[in-house]
Design a protein around this nucleic acid. Sequence first.
DNA 1: ATTTCGTATATGTATAAATATTTAAAGTCT
DNA 2: AGACTTTAAATATTTATACATATACGAAAT
Lengths: 234, 234
Amino acid sequence: MTQSTENTSYKDIKKTVLARIRSGDWQPDSLLPNESELATEFSCTRTTVNRALRELAEEGYLERRRKAGTRVLSAPQRQARFTIPMVRDEVEALGGTYRYALVSCDQKTAPDWLAARLALSPGRDVMHVRCMHYSGNTPFQYEDRWIVTDSVPQVKQANFSEIGPNEWLIQTVPFTNVELTFLASRADVALADFLDVAEGEPVFTGERITWLEGRPVTFAKMYFAAGYRMTTQF
Amino acid sequence: MTQSTENTSYKDIKKTVLARIRSGDWQPDSLLPNESELATEFSCTRTTVNRALRELAEEGYLERRRKAGTRVLSAPQRQARFTIPMVRDEVEALGGTYRYALVSCDQKTAPDWLAARLALSPGRDVMHVRCMHYSGNTPFQYEDRWIVTDSVPQVKQANFSEIGPNEWLIQTVPFTNVELTFLASRADVALADFLDVAEGEPVFTGERITWLEGRPVTFAKMYFAAGYRMTTQF
DNA sequence: ATTTCGTATATGTATAAATATTTAAAGTCT
DNA sequence: AGACTTTAAATATTTATACATATACGAAAT
C-alpha cells in the first residue's frame, strides 16, 4: 500500500507512458504531448520527462525528432539483447561443473579462407587452438579458434592447456569490437565425436570475429551440444 | 584540427574514459576516480560525468555501486543486441522481393503441449496458422504459429490469406512482452519440402512467445531456410 | 570473534534555469 | 512552381544545487 508517495520519478513516468501506449490510449503513430506539457501534467521538471522519454525511445517504443516531437512507433523495432556469457559462467549458471580440455594448439600460416575472412595480408602467422568445454562430463561446446599473432604477440607464450583461449583473450585484450553470428550447421564425423551426437545432426553454431582498434584479433567457431537454446526476454 | 573547442560533453567524456580503459591506463578491476573528481578534471558538472559513466555501465564496460564507486569490469559483460526485424523488412533489406503464402489456418482447442507451454487453462481455443515467406521464389522462412483467441478475440475475424499473422499481430497488439529463443533443429519431411532442403538438414529456428499484460498471446516457431545467419556487431 | 549498528561516502535522482541544436514549416525571391 | 532563407518549436545538453539512497567500513556491543 505504498501509494501515498509521489510518483513522479522518471521510472514512474516511463511506466505510465508505457501503460498508455499499451492500453491504446496513445495510438501507434500518434504524437505525444511535448515534454513541457508532460512535465506540467506530472508536475515535475522537463528534465525528468526527458529522461523517461529518452529511455523509452532507446528501448524502441518511441521515435523522437527535434521540432517534430515524440511519436509512438507503429511497428516497434524492439531489439533483443542477448548477454553473451563466457562458457564457464554459462555452464555454472546451468548448475553444471565446468571442465576445459585442450584438443590442439599449433602455430601456422593463416590459411587462405581465414586471411580472406579477416582481411589479413597473406602469409601472416596465426595460432590455431581447438578445445572442448564440458558440463561435468557432458560435452557442452567445441571451440575452434584462430588468433592473429601479430595482433596479440603475447599469444606465443600463452599456454592453453589449463585455461581456454577465450578466457585468456579476455584477460589479455579486453574491450574489443565484436561481430557475432549464429547459424545452424551439421556435425561432421569429427565434430559428432566431440559433441557425442550422430553425424549429420544439427548443431547450433556461433561465429565470432574480434577486432582491437581495427586490427583483427581472433576468429572463433563455437559448436554447441545438442539441445542448446539461446534465450532472451524483452 | 578541431582541438580548440572544449571537449567536455558527455560523449567526449565517454570517449576519453573508454580510451583510457582500452589503453590500459585504467586497468580492469581498478577503481575510477569518483564523479566529483572527474567533474573537476573535465571541468564540467557531476551531472555530465554521471551521464557518461552511467551509459558506459549500461554498455557493459563499468560496474557502479553506491559508496563502492565505479570500477572497470574485468570480463566485460558485453551484450549483443540483435534487431529482430519483420520478415518482410529482412527480405527486402537483403535485396529480395517479399512474397507471402498462407498454408493453413484453423481454429481448434489448444493441444496439451501448447497449453502447458503457455500456461493456458485447458480447453482454450487457439488459431493455428502456418505460412511461408519467400524472397522472390526462394523459400525464406516457414512459420508455424498459434494465437490464443481469448487474448486476441479479433483474430476470429482476421484473414491471413494476404497478410501474415505476425504483421497482423503487430498492428493489432503491439507492445507485448516477448521471450525469444534460437536453436538448431532438423528438417522433417514436411518442413524439408517447404524450405526446399533435404530431409534431416539443420534448420536455424526461432521460437517466440508473446504476452500482453501477462496474458499469453501467441507462440510461433520460425524455421529459416538453409544458409541463414543471424549477425550483429558490438 | 562475531554480530549489530551508525555514519560517511559515492552514486542516484530531481529541480530550476539556461543554452544549443535540429528541423518542420512558413515566408521570400526568383 | 521551385529554390533559398528565415523563424519558431521541439528535443538535446549542460550547469548549479539539493536531497535521496544504498552500502562499505569501522566502532560498539554481545
